[in-house]
Design a protein around this nucleic acid. Structure first.
Lengths: 342, 342
DNA sequence: ACGGCCTTAGACAACGTTGTCAGTTCCATG
DNA sequence: CATGGAACTGACAACGTTGTCTAAGGCCGT
């Protein structure tokens, strides 16, 4: 900018005015400055601008994994909102690691992002206190913040969705419904388990721990668990899977079991998956659909309202789920076979 | 930092040394400073640091759409590499819009990112010249830069993959193979068309323009085009689809056609899809698999080599594709039916 | 002709760091 | 005891902007 000023024979401040389209510069002078800018290929240094002005016009987004369809949809919604407000977006994946989440968030804060949208992996967000003190705004998405951290939160109606999925299966005649969820430490997984239990209770069905399997969606582990479930003395006739990855891995496991000798009840199992996924329509999989784009958009809207000075008490928004019947969830229970004869 | 210095009764510079773990500070002093830092909740301002040091330890990634599985895999690989090198990542989606790509890139440059990884949407990258002049490093991924822009480039072997897919179908007896590609203006789409033609030529088969349909994967348009293709007098017995989205929409269209009255040859069509996708295994879809993670990793590696001073001439790397047979591509041609009798 | 206002332009400090250099203290050594 | 050097600490400028304040000149009304 100094060079431009020298080249155009004006003061630094005049160049600044031209660059920022500030009024009060004579058209002729502005033209001369413009010409110098182009001749020198000058581009404003936003780092200095940020330092001087105190606002960075950027926000940070911490999700669990960009490569996951749910989070990449969310990501895109946030990105659109950011662009729309003229903000730039830092992105990082926590990979379900609380320390990594913390490092990312603090790195973003060190860059003085104006706001954060966080899908928390950890359950302790005390580390944010000094940042809040310093005026950073944060919105939690998909999962609530850990205790002692007051912030806006946007969630899916996890329990409600799981309850609806369970009720749907029950309405189609199922009495033994297994729940396959992600690690119970994950908020959404726990909530969906809760909804499943509510669904059973509402229909007067007993809760059987033997029908519940939880853990990260590792193919080998899931295949083993499914085999165990289906070869038990009183196997389930329906499955409720707890998230997209789990649903997909369940389908893979079921396919491999159907091929194998110990196929058992795998063939006619009813299935409802929590979270929609690409091609579920073609595969005829009934799902409880979330709306990750809406989740992201809502979180971003909240954040930008805060950034524009909104000081209302923090809110907690739940986004409704929608049951999409596609066939797999409407299958009636298979008549029980005597497995000892198989 | 000033406040911390005052609180600890030391000079600014000493605090700086402590914060940056520089040697030459007495343990006792360091302790006092540390204590003040914690008491005041001080966090270093990286904006100022960046301004002073000239390096931002951040890179910008411009892709086509985060919500697309191919790009989100690529994204994740880049993110991992960035994190590994201690860099932060700006992300933005161009949405296949050259102007948006340009705006994003320039915004990143204004923030003085150290490097860029770009999946170009536009074909003119003259706007980058001043940035290169200023020392920015850029790597193009998935598609080459427009004319007059010398930079490292990492591509898939698009033509080779399409050639292999075509050869695969020919090897299974097909003679009339349709190609369904994305808009011909997109580099990868054009390259894949080229590979398809090479594949035909290598087998001595004629190139029939009537068997080629290109355009953005819009469901309605694709359904109409497929219907037209399959109800023609001499319909194809096999399809080669040009990317993930196209494959998926083709499957949807085929499913809907099979339901409909004018099903025609849709049922027994062989299909090879360019680009692998989630659940292709369960659906039994033969694909020419790309490796987006490797693409991203390679691009990031190249970039970080440049950032660490590598001055070798720019390179252009092609990543091999891999044909994954899963059933749909191994179906023999259906015996031709006399459509006038149908 | 003069004072006041508006337009345009520039000087200067400040944003919060870090690199450079200089100063102080203290210990070991001659 | 004097001296050299190592270890530690601090003063100051600079990074490239922008906000504030002041100055110069032209125009208007009186």
């Amino acid at each position: 900018m100094n060079d431009v000023a020298a080249a155009a024979g004006v003061a630094l401040k005049t160049v600044s005015r031209v660059v920022n389209n500030e009024p009060g510069v004579n058209a002729v002078t502005a033209g001369r400055v413009q010409e110098a800018i182009e001749r020198l290929g000058y581009r404003r240094n936003d780092s200095a601008r940020i330092l001087r002005r105190g606002r960075t016009a950027s926000i940070g987004l911490v999700i669990e994994d960009v490569a996951d369809a749910f989070y990449s949809s969310l990501s895109r919604a946030v990105e659109d909102a950011a662009l729309h407000h003229g903000y730039l977006l830092f992105t990082g994946s926590s990979r379900e690691d609380a320390a990594r989440e913390r490092d990312l968030v603090l790195a973003f804060c060190a860059r003085r992002v104006d706001g954060l949208i966080i899908v928390p992996a950890g359950s302790d967000h005390g580390y944010l206190a000094p940042e809040f003190e310093a005026g950073i705004k944060a919105v939690f998405a998909d999962r609530p913040a850990g205790a002692g951290c007051e912030a806006d939160t946007v969630l899916c109606d996890n329990a409600g969705g799981a309850r609806a999925g369970t009720a749907h299966l029950i309405a189609h005649g199922h009495r033994r419904i297994a729940f396959l969820g992600d690690s119970p430490g994950i908020f959404t997984a726990a909530e969906r388990l809760r909804g499943y239990r509510q669904g059973l209770a509402a229909a007067g069905l007993p809760y059987d721990e033997g029908l519940v399997v939880m853990g990260p969606p590792d193919p080998a582990r899931m295949r083993a668990d499914l085999t165990r479930l289906l070869t038990a003395s009183d196997p389930p006739t329906a499955l409720l899977t707890g998230n997209g990855r789990t649903t997909v891995e369940t389908l893979r496991a079921l396919a491999s079991l159907t091929d194998a000798a110990d196929a058992g009840a795998a063939g006619g199992l009813a299935l409802v998956g929590f979270d929609d996924f690409e091609l579920a329509d073609l595969l005829g999989i009934t799902v409880v659909a979330q709306d990750p784009a809406r989740l992201g958009r809502t979180a971003a809207d909240l954040l930008f309202m805060r950034l524009s000075g909104d000081e209302r008490p923090t809110s907690r928004i739940e986004i409704a789920t929608r049951l999409v019947p596609r066939g797999s969830g409407e299958r009636p229970p298979l008549p029980r076979r005597d497995r000892t004869a198989g």
